[in-house]
Nucleic acid binder design. Structure first.
Lengths: 118, 118
DNA sequence: TCTAGATATTGACGTTCATCGATATATCCG
DNA sequence: CGGATATATCGATGAACGTCAATATCTAGA
């Protein structure tokens, strides 16, 4: 039996299912779901939510690691790790000024998060 | 040294930090962050996003496990597990009719997710 | 160039999580 | 009652994750 034949078999089994009407594929493809879930995973952490919140409420809309580390009460490498996750998700950006690294929100990406559930 | 004295010491160290201005506490408390993160964790999974999507797009706004299991292509206990996570997060509700269990969205809770980033 | 301080990276450890097979529970029907 | 079907629970397993200590990298200033 070929792979596509197996797919057809499953489709027909679905059609015969006693409790179900038409099987809707759902508006979300596997790829879309994985993309959205990856973005949501980046914000589904209490420390990262607090980091975003602190950056947003900081004067000038930016904060350096020397602010963030004591504010969340975790070790500096841990904070650096969380900032990296947020940066790779496109939610914040990093600007190095002198010895310090300043982080700012990227509002467009936060809008992407909102749009997942709209 | 008492615990509160240690807190004072850390506060003074913060005030002395060379790169920082006023240390803003951020609009989010530890508890609020944990509550929001718990809700986000429930939706930060590709399978659960697809389950929500399929339920939303199903006729009558409800779907049974016999629909959902083949639709996501995972084992039935796995789907049951994800539905339990969504139910405990308050995002869906379960109604048993005969042998089948039907799941429906709870829009108010989805609004809670949206409000986290508004 | 050398030292000190700020941040990033690495490696390890314990926990949480997604998944599945086996099994239990519950409902319908003959 | 007994068999068949739908769903939930249990237990195990491997992967992903959060955290930290140690270390590396980079910059400013003497």
């Amino acid at each position: 039996m070929t792979a596509s034949a197996a797919t057809d078999v499953r489709a027909s089994l679905l059609a015969e299912a006693p409790c179900c009407g038409i099987t809707t594929p759902g508006g979300l493809t596997r790829e879309q779901a994985e993309t959205s879930a990856a973005l949501l995973k980046a914000v589904a952490d209490p420390v990262r939510l607090r980091l975003l919140s602190i950056i947003r409420d900081s004067e000038g809309g930016e904060a350096c690691v020397c602010d963030l580390t004591p504010a969340v009460g975790l070790a500096q490498p841990t904070v650096s790790h969380h900032l990296k996750v947020l940066t790779e998700a496109g939610l914040i950006e990093r600007e190095k000024r002198g010895t310090w690294a300043w982080y700012r929100l990227l509002p467009a990406r936060l809008e992407d998060v909102r749009s997942i559930f709209s």
